[in-house]
């Protein structure tokens, strides 16, 4: 009892009488604090320097275009390769066209920083279990949008729909469930791909950008340059 009194005497309880809230959006409206800038400097130099590291080479210009492009094929192939190393049942890969953030990469040296520019978002490689009927819908969806980068899948755009869809070289079967690699952005219904949202998926935890870097580095380790071609993965009906 005496103890309790002592404690209470020590700290007189206080009660909330009111509160207010607000938030600040951080930007250059606040001057950069010089001691923080100084602390960060060596790390920033490190990051900037690392981003200039050459991770490989491309023999050809990497160009973003529709319905198919060298830049798109590189990204879709890199995504497929990484997904297949995680789950060998993955048969196809799709890149949302809007997620390709550079229109053109010159032939020659490829830096790590260029991969960050190409894919600045931390989109995560996701393997979606897609019934054939949904994959058909996905191909139609891409056909309406004039063709997105793909790998492992081919089709022909005919009257704004996808015809002659082949998966791993075989005609699409509506009753088979295909494992398709894509970014979590699109898997979660981004770009109005709402029909993908309810499908079963595995989040690999791998950034798509890291899959691209790894793809270029693995080629370089074998002294191979990037050389994506236009292979008529997607074409317009004649």
């Amino acid at each position: 009892m005496a103890m309790a009194t002592f404690l209470n005497a020590c700290h007189k309880p206080l009660f909330i009488s009111s509160h207010t809230n607000q938030f600040y959006t951080i930007s250059n409206r606040y001057a950069a604090d010089s001691s923080m800038v100084q602390m960060l400097r060596p790390y920033k130099i490190g990051v900037d320097t690392q981003m200039q590291v050459v991770i490989g080479y491309s023999d050809v210009p990497l160009t973003k275009a529709q319905p198919e492009s060298t830049l798109g094929n590189f990204m879709a192939d890199a995504q497929l390769k990484k997904a297949q190393s995680i789950d060998k049942k993955v048969v196809g890969s799709v890149v949302n066209y809007g997620g390709v953030r550079l229109p053109y990469v010159a032939p020659g040296a490829l830096t790590r920083g260029k991969m960050y520019e190409l894919m600045p978002f931390d989109n995560v490689l996701t393997i979606v279990e897609m019934p054939g009927s949904d994959l058909r819908q996905f191909c139609d969806f891409m056909a309406v949008r004039k063709g997105w980068p793909i790998s492992g899948i081919t089709y022909v755009i005919k009257d704004k729909t996808a015809a002659n869809i082949l998966v791993d070289g075989l005609p699409l079967n509506d009753n088979i469930v295909y494992k398709i690699a894509m970014g979590d952005y699109i898997a979660n219904g981004g770009d109005n791909a709402d029909f993908i949202r309810p499908l079963k998926r595995k989040n690999t935890g791998v950034f798509i950008r890291d899959a691209m870097i790894e793809y270029v580095e693995q080629l370089q380790a074998k002294n191979i340059h990037l050389h994506p071609n236009i292979e008529k993965r997607v074409k317009y009906a004649e």
Partner: peptide
């Protein structure tokens, strides 16, 4: 991403009644 900094300002007093207000 540190886009925002949140801020809450509280006032306290020792009035018992303020507990009810709360």
């Amino acid at each position: 991403a540190g886009i925002r900094l949140g801020r809450l300002d509280y006032e306290f007093d020792s009035k018992k009644s303020s507990k009810l207000t709360n």
